[in-house]
Nucleic acid binder design. Structure first.
Lengths: 193, 193
DNA sequence: ATTTTTGTTGACTGTTGAGTCAATCAAAAG
DNA sequence: CTTTTGATTGACTCAACAGTCAACAAAAAT
């Protein structure tokens, strides 16, 4: 079985397994062995490819952020008006991919990780900046005079809805989440123009 | 030195130490020894009074919720109009006591704990229900036709602002947090009446 | 004065889990 | 056919830590 070129497959299997196990456990309290088992390999191999548990976590976090970023970019491509752009961003947050229970749960754990690891903090900051810049770009075109406050509110709302979803654990209602935030956006823009 | 009646003092010292250490570490990854040391006692004593680490965490969480609940109730007493009531609730969330960096950080960890422990989940659910009921009571008097959605949005906003504060770690700007949420409330109510 | 109760410690135990390492296997290269 | 290289394992080491326990200290009760 040992063929050449296994590395990328193993890496991504381990990353997926990490997200899945973190989601299942609801915390970073998962062992390398659990992750490896879920990925169908030995714990030694996980260390072989990633070096340490921390690196595995970071790789998983990077993966989630990359998937998220790609989805947002894809959705933005099809948006024509500034309002479309806002909707595209919001809807991306709650897409089937990103709003999966394990992923939501993993997000929460990554927020915790970011309090401990500088690398994780850096990753999350980049994500935050990109999200805000995307929001601001659309809001500026809409001539919202308090665009910065609105952007921060949207961002906080997204995080808040996520955290609450992580707790409830019933099947995620993405529709309601999107409508909640969209309603806010509508009200906020009406109130000020 | 061993006088009678030490128990309540030790318990509260340990609870305070737990919050402080969780806040410092940014996660539940603190040892009983660390907590005990911070409280100025031995690890054995912590076990003596609480039985297990889980129980210590739960006691700390209960303490935060009790303090929070008391503050909200106090603020509500002085509110006269429904709008005052909303403001009172929001302002309580960001009071000097509740919005301390360690407490904010501990909150985030408690959300994680609630994904693992049923007891923690129950505690948090009670807090959520009480918060929502307080919000709804005020919103109903304001004749908001979409009161439930507004209540959920406020709650999500509070959580979102908290989580972001936990990350930034710079000195908390409670003023801005309150104004962010108050602005939302104003817009939401104007938009619909 | 002695007994009981309450508070308190720190050493000890058992377990768990991260990371290492030598050895193995099979394909690819020469 | 032999050598190299990448993939892979599982046993092993070592440290950390939760929880236990026997023992001690001082006040309170008798």
């Amino acid at each position: 079985m040992p063929k050449v070129g296994m590395e990328p497959m193993r890496r991504s299997a381990l990353v997926e397994a990490t997200i899945s196990e973190i989601g299942r456990a609801g915390s970073l309290d998962v062992t390398v062995s659990q992750i490896a088992k879920k990925a169908g390999v030995s714990s030694g191999l996980a260390h072989h490819y990633f070096g340490s548990k921390d690196q595995i976590f970071l790789a998983a976090m990077r993966h989630i952020l990359v998937v998220f970023g790609a989805e947002v970019r894809g959705a933005l491509l099809m948006a024509e008006t500034p309002n479309d752009r806002l909707q595209a961003i919001i809807r991306s947050c709650f897409s089937a991919q990103n709003f999966r229970p394990e992923v939501v749960s993993a997000w929460l754990s990554f927020y915790v990780l970011a309090q401990q690891s500088d690398d994780a903090k850096r990753l999350l900051r980049i994500y935050h900046l990109r999200l805000k810049s995307n929001l601001m770009y659309a809001l500026k075109q809409l001539k919202a005079n308090n665009d910065e406050e609105i952007a921060d509110t949207i961002a906080a709302l997204i995080d808040g809805v996520y955290i609450r979803q992580a707790l409830q654990r019933d099947e995620a209602n993405a529709q309601r989440a999107v409508s909640l935030i969209s309603t806010y956006v509508k009200d906020a823009l009406e109130g000020q123009t």
